[in-house]
Design a protein around this nucleic acid. Sequence first.
DNA 1: TGTTAGCACTCTTAATCGTTGAGTGCTAAT
DNA 2: ATTAGCACTCAACGATTAAGAGTGCTAACA
Lengths: 349, 349
Amino acid sequence: MLSERQKMILRMIVEDYIQSAEPVGSRSISKHVDMGLSAATIRNEMADLEEQGYLEQPHTSAGRVPSQQGYRYYVDHLLQLGERLKQEEISKMKMLFSERVDEIEKVAQQTALYLSTFTQYTAVVLGPQVYDNTLRSLQVVPITEHSAVLLVVTSTGQVQNKTVSFPDDISLSQVEQLVRLLNEKLVGIPIYQMRSRIFEEISREVARQMRDFEEAQRILDRLLNVIVSEKDGKVFLGGTTNMLLQPEFHNVEKAKSVLSWLEHHDLVSKALLQESKLSAPLSVRIGGENELSMLQNCSLVTATYRIGEDPVGVIGIIGPTRMEYGRVIRVLDYLSKEMTQLVTKWYSG
Amino acid sequence: MLSERQKMILRMIVEDYIQSAEPVGSRSISKHVDMGLSAATIRNEMADLEEQGYLEQPHTSAGRVPSQQGYRYYVDHLLQLGERLKQEEISKMKMLFSERVDEIEKVAQQTALYLSTFTQYTAVVLGPQVYDNTLRSLQVVPITEHSAVLLVVTSTGQVQNKTVSFPDDISLSQVEQLVRLLNEKLVGIPIYQMRSRIFEEISREVARQMRDFEEAQRILDRLLNVIVSEKDGKVFLGGTTNMLLQPEFHNVEKAKSVLSWLEHHDLVSKALLQESKLSAPLSVRIGGENELSMLQNCSLVTATYRIGEDPVGVIGIIGPTRMEYGRVIRVLDYLSKEMTQLVTKWYSG
DNA sequence: TGTTAGCACTCTTAATCGTTGAGTGCTAAT
DNA sequence: ATTAGCACTCAACGATTAAGAGTGCTAACA
């Protein structure tokens, strides 16, 4: 258990360290206004806090640095979230959402950019998930003899287009016939059930209606791939190189390990979804709380945004464990709500 | 003018330095097989080469390093492009293009990835340009009361979809009416002429056919934006963090300047198009030959790929001036040809 | 009993100073 | 024209030293 005084000291140390990135000495805490204690007293308390695992000492004659546990305690109990963002910042962010945008992808990209410039960290935005959406409609637009654009519209109004080509020996009309059939059978079905549905119900039907079963199977397969392919939302990054601003990543090795992880969008997407989908709308994972080895020195703060009540996407910040949690959380909170509003309105259904 | 011997020595120095990243001394050149000269002789030639501007000396008692001019001479006159890529590498790359892919974007992305893993540098792929393509067809697919997906199909078969929303006081049927009109008037027109065409011809027409002129103008405007928006091809990056492998970018400052430049896709796209569109299918820009300040220590090697005879896209490699030009050029040459074949076949028109 | 001043001690950081070794330029001999 | 030899230069490295920040502990104090 921590005394009130210890809490206060811990908070000061964390905040000082977040600011300066240098181990915090007893003197600098003691000199702090509204702290009427001598350095010696602080030292005693610090020794206590270290014993309890909230602080660490890089070496004997250095100041203290918050441990992972220290950050955790800070985030859980010492953070004062009452404070609001500055008015000017809010109005800047409002601008983003007031520009009329025609594309959800642009919004995601822009949000990532804003998120990163506002926080000076690296931002990640996971585009809306279509995982448990249902199919609203399927359209084909012919392009050449043997290729066409397939339009997949989901219940949330998301649209994907893919250009598909067909083997020479298959005509467009055959494809159109297939698409008609698919529309009939698949509208209203959740995307994730598609694959099994097709094999259970449709294959039979196809076999009856079309002469060449083999052929039909092949096209069916290709169409299906298009439909379910992008089931994991796209990843948008902002301020990737902000990582390099942080002194903890001046070591090129460490920087590289995180940056190359960020290049693998599939892994990033997985990490973002890991927790946030089920749990609270806001999640803070500090250092070792992340499983991935390249994130051991990082913190990942994420917030979900929703359509109505259903969470459909994630926005997040990646930075060093020495992160301005308060500010980051406030920005994420604000922007995720703004995103929720936007996509809810956008996909008005 | 360089004597044959000087050329040979210059080539050896460049190649040695490319390999080792360390200034090259006279002794190591002299020890080279098929070089029957003593270090002293080499030293004399080196002094000559330096005087003529092909070499530089980091400090008095260090070996020599190629100057920008030195690299330029190497690329222009000393590179032996006769050599082929190893068979195993070719077959690896063939795999990329043999997988059946349904999307040009995937190919671009994959190419960037391969390019970077093959060369250990950073790769850039500029997706096919639609700049001087003509409009083939325009389609609307309604989604909700006040939003629809607009499909833009160009003459090369590229497709863009955009979800557009309309003000509450405009009905879908009005939009459809407009799209019909646009289709009538705009099919076959190069995209880049669109804007002026609309204002010259269509506005009048619209004014006649539709009751509310103001309203029509507003929708028209929005549709137009969608059509011409993505006129610059998308940029795909591969192996961004490979930059950090190079000793010249172990300095975080330098690394950051290049990496953040890479984040601005519009700038990257501009830089790639700057030269390559007009000139030869292969372009090598060394260090200061690039205008951008962050590329002063970099070389940018690009190759175009084409549809038939028309160049429509660019693939390229960014690395330190100390770059394996031979290898890079061979890989780019191979992959750009492969890309040409693919997109030519793909957009069979 | 909690707080604080004082002091010896630890350990990092930066600066200083030879020493080493790679590499050069020049000269004289081949 | 080439090369062996030699004196010279200069970055890189390691050791030594000095400075300074910060600690833990003890003893005095309220």
